[in-house]
Amino acid sequence: MADGTNVPVGGLAAASPKGRKTAMQKFAQRRSTTGFLLCLPLILLVACFVVYPAFYAIYLSMLNKKMTAFVGLGNFQFLLKRHTFQLVIFQSCLFAITAVVLKALLGFTLAHLMHNIPGKNQKIWRGLLLVPWVIPLALSTLTWWWMFDPSYSAFNWVLNQFGFANVPWLGVGWIARFCTIAVNVWYGTPFFMIMYLAALKSVPEQLYEASAIDGANAVQKLFFVTLPMMRNIISITVLFSLITTFADFDIVRILTAGGPQDMTHVFATYAFQVGIQSGDIPLGAADSLFMFPILAFAAFFVLRGVTKRTKEIAA
């Protein structure tokens, strides 16, 4: 297959007066050059707002507190020794992994249910179930916070109506952790559902027919037809969600601000508290960069799997 990168465009008309093209003319007429120029605005945006801040954060994380001296990996070493930060690592992993697994399971289930709803009704349900995902997260989390509110919790009011005692939703560590994860799952499940629904619709019907002829039951169809056909989309969705969930700030900040007793802090909220509120920007930057190797590690394996499977399908 020709990649087209060296194919001259309009070559006949663009000859030089002497009938020979200069190097510059040749360069300008390549399709790759046109493509590059069209992409240039995006490249500049990414460079300014992604690459530069990322390298600046790395630079900051290697400075001392006053930002006057280079300390190498000193901030990272320091953080790893702190008990509170060890708690933050545990909580970030717990928050992200639990939330992503639950979102994937719920999203998968909902996608299947949705897939089996016939006609117009499917569109209505699809629209309704997407609502949590399209509401700005900060706003919806504020609503959740009102429902969990220490003094005037709507949930507690309902519990009281049935004769149950109040639950300190955000006042006890494990309950507060559960609440932050639950809100993240509520918010993120529609994304999984819509992705999985799209994947389900792309599975060829003939495969199910063939497996039915072979005598496969519903579970066997799920494990030997549906899941293998959806593996790539599942991997990509999980990776994407893992990245955004690890970087989550809004939910924890609004619901608990990291409390009670630091038991819900995640990397982002702890970085804000240390870096911005306590005036230690290098330590805050080091804290936020702890996500980078974890996510890079996950991305490497997930994307390698996706590439491998794509090649298998192509072969």
């Binding site: 509110d149 220490p150 003094s151 005037y152 109040n166 300190p168 939703w169 955000l170 006042g171 006890v172 507060a176 608990t256 601000a257 409390g259 009670p260 007793q261």
Partner: peptide, 16 residues
């Protein structure tokens, strides 16, 4: 102190 005092923010006391 209130049972939920550990989850108070700066508005909780005002509301109370």
């Amino acid at each position: 102190l209130p049972d939920d005092a550990v989850s108070f923010d700066d508005a909780s006391n005002n509301r109370a």
